[in-house]
């Protein structure tokens, strides 16, 4: 990351490529949020890299006037890992959808998270395969009827936040494409986090899965359906904060505050070393029609993998001196022939 603040505008961050998502796609608002946020972050375009896999979301790098790779399906966390470990001076962002990151690339995602590689990972979750025209995804709900599940999906979906917490992620957050300010806040915090950060973005696919999150993200529903997690505050939501969350034998349960009193509510601690409470909160998003937490579930400090790796290199050089090729070639027993 650069130390000097660079002054830029949204236009500087927009590439000359025509954006080719479907009209009305949630990806547009995410792109705008990002292009507006970048000048505020104050980094430089040349030190910023976006890496993606395959899918609608994965077209994202083409539209950012930075360095970027639109790679192959599922592999973006792996490619980004190699870049981040060799170039700690860069801001490396990874962008992908639920199919890319959780299905074909699930293995790379969980390992990038548990290693704590310095990556900012944006998971656009629309609960459907868009680019292949409408098959169910690993986050689609049971019973979903799609072209590949004419009698309804029988797959149990992933909860991406639960998965990330289980994978030892050090920064985990959720936002949605209807609230630019909230997206920017989450993206900024994820960017500033040392190590791997993942932000799940509920994103509407208006062609193949329209309105998937409408019951919780449309303006008039948010008060009753979105639980804003605020560090150090009781977890409560609804008009006048009438509802809240308690822990009942380790299970998060929604209650009326009037019934239990404020003191019974969970105090959100995103920095808790143990992710158990964060995991319990993540289970509240059981379907898309009940109150769902958004915000930062977990933000803990842990050594960034690249820092540890480069520290080992520095220690090796301090111990053995810089590499001496002649000495290396003579490091096994040798003999002279004259």
């Amino acid at each position: 990351m650069t130390d000097t603040t660079v002054t830029t505008t949204k236009k500087d961050w927009s590439s000359d490529q025509e954006v080719r998502w479907c009209p009305g796609c949630g990806d547009y608002s995410i792109l705008t949020a990002m292009q507006l946020l970048m000048p505020e972050i104050g980094t430089s375009r040349e030190n910023t890299v976006f890496i993606s896999g395959i899918g609608c979301a994965a077209r994202f790098p083409y539209y950012m006037n930075t360095y970027g790779i639109h790679s192959i399906h599922g592999r973006s966390p792996a490619i980004a890992t190699g870049l981040a470990l060799t170039r700690p001076d860069l801001d490396v962002w990874v962008v992908g959808g639920d199919g890319d990151m959780l299905s074909i690339g699930g293995n790379h995602l969980i390992h990038a998270l548990r290693r704590n590689v310095n990556l900012t990972i944006l998971l656009f979750n629309n609960q459907i395969y868009g680019l292949t025209k409408g098959q169910y995804s690993p986050t689609s709900e049971v019973g979903k009827v799609t072209k590949s599940t004419p009698r309804g999906s029988i797959d149990t979906p992933f909860n991406p936040i639960s998965l990330a917490l289980g994978a030892e992620a050090t920064f985990v957050a959720r936002t949605h494409d209807m609230d630019r300010g909230h997206m920017q806040e989450m993206f900024r915090r994820a960017h500033d986090h040392k190590g791997s950060a993942i932000v799940e973005v509920y994103q509407n696919c208006n062609v193949f899965n329209d309105g998937a999150f409408a019951a919780i993200t449309k303006k008039d529903a948010r008060t009753e359906m979105l639980i804003n997690l605020t560090h150090g505050e009781p977890v409560r939501f609804g008009a006048d904060g009438a509802r809240g969350v308690v822990l009942d034998n380790g299970v998060a349960r929604i209650v009326d505050v009037a019934d239990v009193g404020v003191d019974a509510l969970v105090i959100h601690d995103e920095a808790a070393p143990d992710p158990s409470v964060a995991f319990a909160l993540s289970r509240l998003a059981g379907d898309r029609h009940s109150p769902t937490p958004v915000g930062v579930f977990r933000a803990v400090e842990h050594e960034d993998y690249g820092v540890s790796l480069n520290a080992q290199l520095a220690a090796a050089q301090a111990d053995a001196g810089p590499g001496d090729l002649h000495a290396l070639l003579h490091s096994l027993p040798t003999w002279e022939v004259s």
């Binding site: 890496i51 790779i69 790679s71 592999r75 966390p77 792996a78 490619i79 980004a80 890992t81 190699g82 870049l83 981040a84 470990l85 060799t86 293995n107 790379h108 390992h111 790796l309 480069n310 080992q312 290199l313 220690a315 090796a316 050089q317 111990d319 053995a320 001196g321 810089p322 590499g323 290396l328």
Partner: peptide, 25 residues
């Protein structure tokens, strides 16, 4: 490592080549 060699024991063969390609980039 004193030659500046970074090694990553990757999670699988695909990540192994992917990370190497990212480093080359």
């Amino acid at each position: 490592k004193n030659f500046g060699v970074r090694t990553l024991q990757a999670e699988d063969e695909i990540a192994a080549v992917g990370s190497a390609l990212g480093a080359s980039y």
